[in-house]
Amino acid sequence: MENWSIEDVDRLQPTVVKQIQTIVSKNRIGHAYILEGAKGTGKVKVMQFFVQLLFCESPVNNVPCETCRSCKRLKSFNHLNYMQLEPDGQFIKKGQVDELVHALSKTTIEKQRKIYVIHHADQLNASAANTLLKFLEEPQSEITAILLTDKMHALLPTIRSRCQHLSLSPMPTAILKQKLIQEGITDSMASTVSKMTNQVEEAINLAKDEQFGLVRKSVLKLVEANGRSVQDALMCIHEDFGPLLKEKEQAEQALDLLLFAYRDIVAIKASPIADCTFPDMISYWKQIALQTTYEQLSKQLEMILHAKQNLHKNMNRTLMMEQLMLNLQEGFTFV
Protein backbone atom coordinates (compact mmCIF):
# COMPACT_ATOMS: atom_id res chain seq x y z
CA MET A 1 0.00 0.00 0.00
CA GLU A 2 1.23 3.43 -0.81
CA ASN A 3 1.90 5.88 1.95
CA TRP A 4 -0.62 8.52 2.69
CA SER A 5 0.91 11.86 1.87
CA ILE A 6 -0.55 15.09 0.57
CA GLU A 7 2.64 17.10 0.66
CA ASP A 8 3.20 19.43 -2.29
CA VAL A 9 -0.05 18.41 -3.91
CA ASP A 10 -0.93 22.04 -4.68
CA ARG A 11 2.32 22.49 -6.56
CA LEU A 12 1.84 19.27 -8.48
CA GLN A 13 -1.73 19.92 -9.58
CA PRO A 14 -2.72 23.50 -8.76
CA THR A 15 -5.86 23.65 -10.92
CA VAL A 16 -7.48 20.46 -9.75
CA VAL A 17 -6.62 21.11 -6.12
CA LYS A 18 -8.33 24.49 -6.41
CA GLN A 19 -11.34 22.79 -7.99
CA ILE A 20 -11.51 20.31 -5.14
CA GLN A 21 -11.21 23.04 -2.54
CA THR A 22 -14.13 24.89 -4.11
CA ILE A 23 -16.25 21.73 -4.20
CA VAL A 24 -15.64 21.10 -0.51
CA SER A 25 -15.90 24.67 0.74
CA LYS A 26 -19.20 25.23 -1.07
CA ASN A 27 -20.34 21.86 0.22
CA ARG A 28 -21.34 20.67 -3.22
CA ILE A 29 -20.00 17.18 -2.95
CA GLY A 30 -21.11 14.86 -5.70
CA HIS A 31 -21.69 11.16 -5.41
CA ALA A 32 -19.02 10.10 -7.87
CA TYR A 33 -15.84 11.49 -9.37
CA ILE A 34 -13.40 10.26 -11.97
CA LEU A 35 -9.85 11.45 -11.45
CA GLU A 36 -8.17 11.09 -14.77
CA GLY A 37 -4.55 11.76 -15.59
CA ALA A 38 -1.61 10.15 -17.34
CA LYS A 39 0.86 8.02 -15.44
CA GLY A 40 2.91 10.08 -13.05
CA THR A 41 0.52 13.00 -12.72
CA GLY A 42 -0.07 12.26 -9.05
CA LYS A 43 -3.61 10.89 -9.13
CA VAL A 44 -3.24 9.07 -5.85
CA LYS A 45 -1.91 12.15 -4.12
CA VAL A 46 -4.76 14.29 -5.38
CA MET A 47 -7.25 11.62 -4.32
CA GLN A 48 -5.71 11.49 -0.87
CA PHE A 49 -5.93 15.25 -0.61
CA PHE A 50 -9.59 15.15 -1.62
CA VAL A 51 -10.47 12.39 0.85
CA GLN A 52 -8.56 14.00 3.69
CA LEU A 53 -10.19 17.37 3.06
CA LEU A 54 -13.63 15.76 3.11
CA PHE A 55 -12.96 13.96 6.38
CA CYS A 56 -10.88 16.58 8.19
CA GLU A 57 -12.62 17.97 11.25
CA SER A 58 -10.96 21.36 11.21
CA PRO A 59 -9.45 22.28 7.85
CA VAL A 60 -7.46 25.51 7.75
CA ASN A 61 -7.97 27.57 4.58
CA ASN A 62 -9.28 24.52 2.79
CA VAL A 63 -6.21 22.50 3.62
CA PRO A 64 -6.54 19.46 5.90
CA CYS A 65 -5.13 20.09 9.36
CA GLU A 66 -3.10 16.84 9.53
CA THR A 67 -3.53 16.72 13.30
CA CYS A 68 -7.18 15.87 13.93
CA ARG A 69 -8.42 12.37 14.65
CA SER A 70 -9.72 11.86 11.12
CA CYS A 71 -6.49 12.94 9.43
CA LYS A 72 -4.46 10.75 11.74
CA ARG A 73 -6.64 7.74 11.13
CA LEU A 74 -6.46 8.20 7.36
CA LYS A 75 -2.68 8.26 7.54
CA SER A 76 -2.56 5.00 9.46
CA PHE A 77 -5.30 3.45 7.26
CA ASN A 78 -7.53 3.08 10.28
CA HIS A 79 -10.43 5.11 8.98
CA LEU A 80 -13.50 2.91 8.80
CA ASN A 81 -15.42 5.16 6.42
CA TYR A 82 -12.71 4.99 3.78
CA MET A 83 -12.51 1.95 1.56
CA GLN A 84 -10.41 1.20 -1.48
CA LEU A 85 -10.27 -1.38 -4.21
CA GLU A 86 -7.32 -2.42 -6.31
CA PRO A 87 -7.15 -4.87 -9.20
CA ASP A 88 -6.70 -8.44 -8.09
CA GLY A 89 -4.32 -9.60 -10.79
CA GLN A 90 -5.27 -8.19 -14.17
CA PHE A 91 -8.78 -7.11 -13.41
CA ILE A 92 -11.04 -5.85 -10.70
CA LYS A 93 -13.44 -8.76 -10.42
CA LYS A 94 -17.12 -8.92 -9.73
CA GLY A 95 -16.59 -10.58 -6.36
CA GLN A 96 -14.48 -7.67 -5.19
CA VAL A 97 -17.12 -5.15 -6.20
CA ASP A 98 -19.83 -7.25 -4.57
CA GLU A 99 -17.89 -7.24 -1.35
CA LEU A 100 -17.38 -3.50 -1.51
CA VAL A 101 -21.04 -2.84 -2.23
CA HIS A 102 -22.01 -5.09 0.65
CA ALA A 103 -19.70 -3.30 3.05
CA LEU A 104 -20.97 0.07 1.89
CA SER A 105 -24.60 -0.86 2.25
CA LYS A 106 -24.24 -1.00 6.01
CA THR A 107 -24.40 1.98 8.30
CA THR A 108 -21.18 3.17 9.83
CA ILE A 109 -20.09 3.13 13.44
CA GLU A 110 -19.30 6.82 13.33
CA LYS A 111 -21.81 8.96 11.53
CA GLN A 112 -19.97 10.49 8.62
CA ARG A 113 -19.78 10.37 4.85
CA LYS A 114 -18.51 7.11 3.34
CA ILE A 115 -15.88 7.29 0.63
CA TYR A 116 -14.64 4.53 -1.61
CA VAL A 117 -11.79 4.69 -4.05
CA ILE A 118 -11.24 2.42 -7.02
CA HIS A 119 -7.67 2.38 -8.29
CA HIS A 120 -7.13 1.60 -11.98
CA ALA A 121 -10.86 1.84 -12.62
CA ASP A 122 -10.23 1.02 -16.29
CA GLN A 123 -9.39 -2.52 -15.20
CA LEU A 124 -12.88 -3.24 -13.94
CA ASN A 125 -14.04 -6.21 -15.96
CA ALA A 126 -17.41 -6.04 -17.64
CA SER A 127 -19.53 -7.72 -15.01
CA ALA A 128 -17.78 -5.88 -12.19
CA ALA A 129 -18.37 -2.55 -13.92
CA ASN A 130 -22.04 -3.30 -14.32
CA THR A 131 -22.40 -4.29 -10.69
CA LEU A 132 -20.73 -1.07 -9.67
CA LEU A 133 -22.93 0.91 -12.03
CA LYS A 134 -26.06 -0.08 -10.19
CA PHE A 135 -24.56 1.09 -6.94
CA LEU A 136 -23.07 4.29 -8.37
CA GLU A 137 -26.47 5.32 -9.62
CA GLU A 138 -28.44 5.04 -6.45
CA PRO A 139 -26.38 5.51 -3.32
CA GLN A 140 -28.50 4.89 -0.24
CA SER A 141 -26.79 7.45 1.96
CA GLU A 142 -23.96 9.94 1.90
CA ILE A 143 -21.49 8.03 -0.20
CA THR A 144 -18.83 9.40 -2.52
CA ALA A 145 -16.99 7.34 -5.08
CA ILE A 146 -13.62 8.32 -6.50
CA LEU A 147 -12.44 6.40 -9.55
CA LEU A 148 -8.82 6.72 -10.57
CA THR A 149 -7.76 5.98 -14.11
CA ASP A 150 -5.19 6.84 -16.73
CA LYS A 151 -7.36 5.59 -19.56
CA MET A 152 -10.63 7.39 -19.34
CA HIS A 153 -11.90 5.96 -22.62
CA ALA A 154 -11.50 2.41 -21.30
CA LEU A 155 -14.27 2.97 -18.76
CA LEU A 156 -17.81 2.05 -19.65
CA PRO A 157 -19.59 5.06 -21.16
CA THR A 158 -22.41 4.46 -18.71
CA ILE A 159 -20.01 4.84 -15.81
CA ARG A 160 -18.38 7.90 -17.31
CA SER A 161 -21.70 9.63 -17.70
CA ARG A 162 -22.57 9.14 -14.05
CA CYS A 163 -19.43 10.73 -12.63
CA GLN A 164 -18.03 14.20 -12.45
CA HIS A 165 -14.69 14.44 -14.15
CA LEU A 166 -11.54 15.93 -12.72
CA SER A 167 -8.68 15.91 -15.20
CA LEU A 168 -5.12 16.17 -14.02
CA SER A 169 -2.86 18.12 -16.30
CA PRO A 170 0.39 16.47 -17.28
CA MET A 171 3.61 18.37 -16.79
CA PRO A 172 4.56 19.94 -20.15
CA THR A 173 7.02 17.59 -21.84
CA ALA A 174 9.42 20.38 -22.67
CA ILE A 175 9.81 21.31 -19.00
CA LEU A 176 10.24 17.70 -17.97
CA LYS A 177 12.83 17.20 -20.70
CA GLN A 178 14.75 20.25 -19.57
CA LYS A 179 14.80 18.98 -15.99
CA LEU A 180 16.12 15.63 -17.20
CA ILE A 181 18.86 17.22 -19.24
CA GLN A 182 19.87 19.18 -16.15
CA GLU A 183 20.23 15.86 -14.39
CA GLY A 184 22.86 14.87 -16.93
CA ILE A 185 20.74 12.69 -19.18
CA THR A 186 21.39 12.83 -22.91
CA ASP A 187 18.98 14.71 -25.11
CA SER A 188 17.78 11.65 -27.00
CA MET A 189 17.23 9.58 -23.85
CA ALA A 190 15.47 12.50 -22.17
CA SER A 191 13.10 12.81 -25.13
CA THR A 192 12.24 9.15 -24.93
CA VAL A 193 11.64 8.84 -21.19
CA SER A 194 9.68 12.08 -21.03
CA LYS A 195 7.19 10.38 -23.34
CA MET A 196 7.07 7.27 -21.17
CA THR A 197 6.27 8.94 -17.87
CA ASN A 198 5.34 12.31 -16.52
CA GLN A 199 7.17 12.17 -13.23
CA VAL A 200 10.72 13.46 -12.84
CA GLU A 201 12.00 10.78 -10.47
CA GLU A 202 10.46 7.95 -12.42
CA ALA A 203 11.88 9.36 -15.65
CA ILE A 204 15.37 9.57 -14.15
CA ASN A 205 15.15 6.01 -12.88
CA LEU A 206 14.01 4.84 -16.27
CA ALA A 207 16.77 6.70 -18.08
CA LYS A 208 19.39 5.14 -15.82
CA ASP A 209 17.88 1.67 -16.12
CA GLU A 210 20.14 -0.50 -18.26
CA GLN A 211 17.29 -2.79 -19.25
CA PHE A 212 15.31 0.14 -20.58
CA GLY A 213 18.29 1.26 -22.64
CA LEU A 214 18.46 -2.22 -24.11
CA VAL A 215 14.75 -2.22 -24.93
CA ARG A 216 15.10 1.14 -26.61
CA LYS A 217 18.06 0.00 -28.70
CA SER A 218 16.35 -3.22 -29.74
CA VAL A 219 13.17 -1.43 -30.75
CA LEU A 220 15.06 1.00 -32.98
CA LYS A 221 16.95 -1.89 -34.51
CA LEU A 222 13.65 -3.62 -35.17
CA VAL A 223 12.17 -0.58 -36.89
CA GLU A 224 15.20 -0.42 -39.17
CA ALA A 225 15.11 -4.14 -39.87
CA ASN A 226 11.43 -3.90 -40.63
CA GLY A 227 12.23 -1.12 -43.09
CA ARG A 228 14.54 -3.48 -44.96
CA SER A 229 12.49 -6.67 -45.17
CA VAL A 230 10.17 -8.83 -43.16
CA GLN A 231 12.78 -11.59 -42.96
CA ASP A 232 15.20 -9.22 -41.28
CA ALA A 233 12.49 -8.12 -38.86
CA LEU A 234 11.67 -11.71 -37.92
CA MET A 235 15.37 -12.47 -37.45
CA CYS A 236 15.69 -9.42 -35.29
CA ILE A 237 12.82 -10.59 -33.06
CA HIS A 238 14.47 -13.93 -32.51
CA GLU A 239 17.93 -12.50 -31.92
CA ASP A 240 17.18 -9.46 -29.77
CA PHE A 241 13.70 -9.81 -28.38
CA GLY A 242 13.90 -13.31 -26.90
CA PRO A 243 14.92 -12.20 -23.40
CA LEU A 244 12.94 -8.96 -23.58
CA LEU A 245 9.66 -10.70 -24.12
CA LYS A 246 10.01 -12.81 -20.99
CA GLU A 247 8.75 -10.06 -18.71
CA LYS A 248 5.36 -8.69 -19.53
CA GLU A 249 6.33 -5.25 -18.32
CA GLN A 250 9.28 -5.08 -20.69
CA ALA A 251 7.21 -6.38 -23.57
CA GLU A 252 4.77 -3.60 -22.89
CA GLN A 253 7.60 -1.05 -22.78
CA ALA A 254 8.85 -2.35 -26.10
CA LEU A 255 5.43 -2.01 -27.69
CA ASP A 256 5.05 1.49 -26.26
CA LEU A 257 8.39 2.49 -27.74
CA LEU A 258 7.48 0.94 -31.06
CA LEU A 259 4.27 2.91 -31.02
CA PHE A 260 6.19 6.09 -30.30
CA ALA A 261 8.56 5.35 -33.17
CA TYR A 262 5.69 5.17 -35.64
CA ARG A 263 4.12 8.20 -34.04
CA ASP A 264 7.41 10.00 -34.73
CA ILE A 265 7.23 9.07 -38.37
CA VAL A 266 3.73 10.51 -38.63
CA ALA A 267 4.82 13.65 -36.79
CA ILE A 268 7.84 14.12 -39.08
CA LYS A 269 5.69 13.57 -42.14
CA ALA A 270 3.32 16.26 -40.92
CA SER A 271 6.01 18.72 -39.93
CA PRO A 272 9.77 18.23 -40.36
CA ILE A 273 10.52 20.15 -37.16
CA ALA A 274 8.16 18.12 -34.94
CA ASP A 275 9.14 17.09 -31.41
CA CYS A 276 10.38 13.49 -31.59
CA THR A 277 10.60 10.63 -29.12
CA PHE A 278 13.80 9.47 -30.81
CA PRO A 279 15.62 12.60 -32.04
CA ASP A 280 18.67 10.47 -32.81
CA MET A 281 16.73 8.70 -35.55
CA ILE A 282 15.33 11.80 -37.20
CA SER A 283 17.07 11.35 -40.57
CA TYR A 284 15.81 7.78 -40.86
CA TRP A 285 12.28 8.88 -39.90
CA LYS A 286 12.37 11.49 -42.68
CA GLN A 287 13.36 8.83 -45.16
CA ILE A 288 10.50 6.50 -44.16
CA ALA A 289 8.05 9.37 -44.01
CA LEU A 290 8.69 9.99 -47.69
CA GLN A 291 7.97 6.37 -48.60
CA THR A 292 4.68 5.87 -46.74
CA THR A 293 1.24 7.38 -46.84
CA TYR A 294 -0.78 8.58 -43.87
CA GLU A 295 -3.21 5.78 -44.47
CA GLN A 296 -0.52 3.14 -44.18
CA LEU A 297 0.90 4.74 -41.07
CA SER A 298 -2.43 4.94 -39.34
CA LYS A 299 -3.00 1.26 -40.12
CA GLN A 300 0.39 0.43 -38.66
CA LEU A 301 -0.35 2.38 -35.49
CA GLU A 302 -3.59 0.51 -35.20
CA MET A 303 -1.73 -2.81 -35.51
CA ILE A 304 0.58 -1.91 -32.65
CA LEU A 305 -2.33 -0.91 -30.44
CA HIS A 306 -3.99 -4.17 -31.33
CA ALA A 307 -0.86 -6.07 -30.34
CA LYS A 308 -0.87 -4.23 -27.01
CA GLN A 309 -4.37 -5.49 -26.39
CA ASN A 310 -3.31 -9.02 -27.23
CA LEU A 311 -0.44 -8.71 -24.78
CA HIS A 312 -2.98 -8.16 -22.01
CA LYS A 313 -4.90 -11.17 -23.15
CA ASN A 314 -1.77 -13.26 -22.50
CA MET A 315 -1.05 -14.14 -26.07
CA ASN A 316 2.22 -15.93 -26.72
CA ARG A 317 4.56 -12.96 -26.92
CA THR A 318 6.94 -14.17 -29.59
CA LEU A 319 4.05 -15.11 -31.85
CA MET A 320 2.42 -11.80 -31.13
CA MET A 321 5.57 -9.91 -32.20
CA GLU A 322 5.93 -12.04 -35.32
CA GLN A 323 2.35 -11.41 -36.26
CA LEU A 324 2.81 -7.72 -35.64
CA MET A 325 5.87 -7.61 -37.94
CA LEU A 326 3.97 -9.32 -40.74
CA ASN A 327 1.07 -6.96 -40.28
CA LEU A 328 3.35 -3.93 -40.31
CA GLN A 329 5.01 -5.10 -43.50
CA GLU A 330 2.01 -5.89 -45.52
CA GLY A 331 -0.22 -3.16 -44.35
CA PHE A 332 -3.17 -5.51 -44.21
CA THR A 333 -4.26 -7.91 -41.53
CA PHE A 334 -3.10 -11.46 -41.13
CA VAL A 335 -5.30 -13.45 -38.85
Binding site: S105, K106, T107, T108, I109, K111, Q140, S141
Partner: peptide, 21 residues
Protein backbone atom coordinates in the same frame (compact mmCIF):
# COMPACT_ATOMS: atom_id res chain seq x y z
CA UNK B 1 -30.84 4.14 16.53
CA UNK B 2 -30.56 5.12 12.89
CA UNK B 3 -26.92 4.03 12.76
CA UNK B 4 -26.62 1.11 15.14
CA UNK B 5 -28.57 -1.29 17.26
CA UNK B 6 -27.40 -2.08 20.77
CA UNK B 7 -28.15 -5.17 22.84
CA UNK B 8 -27.21 -4.89 26.48
CA UNK B 9 -26.98 -7.92 28.70
CA UNK B 10 -25.37 -7.71 32.10
CA UNK B 11 -21.97 -6.17 31.59
CA UNK B 12 -21.78 -6.97 27.87
CA UNK B 13 -22.76 -4.48 25.20
CA UNK B 14 -23.30 -5.77 21.68
CA UNK B 15 -23.44 -3.18 18.88
CA UNK B 16 -24.26 -3.99 15.29
CA UNK B 17 -24.22 -1.91 12.17
CA UNK B 18 -27.46 -1.81 10.20
CA UNK B 19 -28.23 -2.33 6.56
CA UNK B 20 -29.19 0.74 4.62
CA UNK B 21 -32.00 0.90 2.15
Amino acid sequence: TQQQVLFKTGNVLFYSRLLEG
